[in-house]
């Protein structure tokens, strides 16, 4: 996983509310058995409109996406995070996310920044013409016009993103605790282990 610390560049002023994962990546793209190449399907329905933001040369390669409330709602498909990553997005900025989406984003090295609607409105304005700067270490989003917005992030997620850490290796450090839980389960509630049919 590529670590994230500072991301600077154009931000796509998307801003739409309740964008579900079917919009981010339609179901027909879920049929892959690999993680790559999904950027082509990202926002496919919206990109049918020739004036869409995603194919606007102004925002080609933009690493930041600004969205509205409840971004990534709907299906739990992680393909949504893969598709955004494949599109080159490293940071999403929105007032709120679905829980599943923000978890998937972090696991795939995408930073989900939460900022209030007023900050989003201002960033949408700036993004139309100018770059935006996101600094995970200092937890700030800044613009060339002295705007400075601080955001909160779960410290564990921050550490994973800053170091590009894979969660499975981290969890494997807790082997003793997991084994102890399993032992207790087998002794106290043996019926929890399904029979072999």
């Amino acid at each position: 996983m590529t670590p994230i610390e500072k991301v600077e560049g154009r931000a796509i002023p998307f801003g739409l509310k309740n964008v579900d994962t079917d919009v981010i990546i339609p179901a027909k793209w879920l049929k892959t058995i690999s993680r790559e190449g999904l950027g082509r399907g990202a926002f496919e329905t919206l990109r049918a409109d020739p004036d869409n933001l995603f194919d606007n040369p102004e925002f080609a390669g933009a690493p930041i996406l600004i969205a509205g409330d409840n971004f990534g709602c709907g299906s739990s498909r992680e393909h949504a995070a893969w598709a955004l990553g494949d599109l080159g997005i490293r940071v999403v900025i929105a007032p709120s996310y679905s829980d599943i989406f923000s978890g998937n984003a972090v696991k795939n090295g995408i930073l989900p920044v939460v900022l209030p609607q007023s900050a989003i409105d201002r960033l949408m304005e700036v993004a139309a013409t100018d770059p935006i700067h996101v600094d995970l270490d200092t937890q700030t989003v800044t613009t060339p016009f002295q705007d400075r917005f601080r955001f909160d992030i779960d410290p564990f997620r921050k550490m994973c993103l800053l170091n590009g850490l894979d969660e499975i290796s981290l969890t494997e450090k807790s082997e003793a605790a997991i084994a102890a839980h399993e032992k207790k389960m087998a002794t106290d509630q043996p019926w929890l282990i399904p029979a072999t049919l």
Partner: peptide, 22 residues
Amino acid sequence: FGIGTSEVEHVLATQTLLLQPA
């Protein structure tokens, strides 16, 4: 609850998930 593919891999490997209480 529903999980994404990275979490599927995490559960397959460790039978656990890292979660924040809701």
